[in-house]
Design a protein around this nucleic acid. Sequence first.
DNA 1: AGATTCGTTTTTATCTATAATTTTGAACCT
DNA 2: AGGTTCAAAATTATAGATAAAAACGAATCT
Lengths: 216, 216
Amino acid sequence: MTNDKDNTITGKITRALAERIIAGHIAPGTKLRQDYFAEEFGASHVPVREAFRRLEAQGLVVSEPRRGVRVASFDIAEVHEVAEMRASLEVLALRHAAPHLTAAILDAAEAINRTGENAADVRSWEEANRAFHRLILTPCGMPRLLTTIDDLHAASARFLFSGFRMEWEAPTDQDHRAILKALRDRQFDVAAATLARHVKWIGTKPGIKTRLKTPS
Amino acid sequence: MTNDKDNTITGKITRALAERIIAGHIAPGTKLRQDYFAEEFGASHVPVREAFRRLEAQGLVVSEPRRGVRVASFDIAEVHEVAEMRASLEVLALRHAAPHLTAAILDAAEAINRTGENAADVRSWEEANRAFHRLILTPCGMPRLLTTIDDLHAASARFLFSGFRMEWEAPTDQDHRAILKALRDRQFDVAAATLARHVKWIGTKPGIKTRLKTPS
DNA sequence: AGATTCGTTTTTATCTATAATTTTGAACCT
DNA sequence: AGGTTCAAAATTATAGATAAAAACGAATCT
């Protein structure tokens, strides 16, 4: 979505705000004032507004005309929704990527998976997790699909970072290992089914906060 | 995505441009100059820029920093990609919507289907087709999923209107009838499978222009 | 006291002006 | 002639200024 080589001020502001919202540094429902961020980034408010439009399309903020934008709130239903969408689309991507997966890619995925298992905090675990999924899905060669999946990952990460589980330990990622094994064995159906279950499971973790929506 | 009650100038420009791009009135690859549209809509170029950002997120235009935006080009691969994504996501939506489908909704869908079959041109057929899909999918109650599907429908419509088939006749929509029948019989798996096949078929129609990409 | 209206303040949305970058084209050199 | 360099023109990106709408609060009325 947001091109990494987008070096415009709008691009920088978009990335910075997306980062903060995903990390949970700005609470859901918070009103985002354009003048405030214009000053913070040493810019005028025009690029801030453009950043708002991008974030809006990504689903990270909601905008009411003449009333500004607020950080999007989300509830357990949306977490499920995103999980289901990811499951559907990542399976689709994997089906198309599978024939193009080389041993080298699978080795790299395994390495990243180990990195994730040794991660010290949620943040770096999520980064490794995202890299893992990206690595095995990218060869599908479907750019629109991949950017949509990226947006969904951002939404998932937001949930993950929302502190629904205070203490956190790096899990040995059994599912990832099973997916890789199935891919090596060319058992693509097994890999796809495992991936679907794996992604959907994220939305059903125990101990979920059900009240994240802001009282309107 | 774009809220219909968005009465801001940005909103109007966004809708007008999206309309034209989808209808094929502006050719893929065409450079969109902000000053031109600012004057046309009697506005300054700031809301035009915001509209560009929205269209960019929708995939209707592509933007290169400092070089402006162009109407997004698309090739046969992307048509397939969109069809596959629609198939996956519409099936997901239908699975969640199915339990909430009432006889009244199915009757309305059947009526819309007849409207489509009597359509005089591609334009009105597409409108009825889109209404049909929307009607049976909306009860899924997954807003994010529905807006994503809407964006994909826009991309599909763009392809449909791109004149890949000069003469056009309204088809009796056999698939739609089959889907409705399966839904009435509570055979949700049949309905889902038919829907998937139906949507994917769009990308495989004969007589497709394969050279829509602009020579870069 | 509680509600309501009106005016002030804050914030958004838009316009006009300026700066920076890219494109275009002509002159120049080989 | 063909290519290259440099300057002029066009266009994008951003800043600063203005207008309009909404939020807020105080004063008034019931």
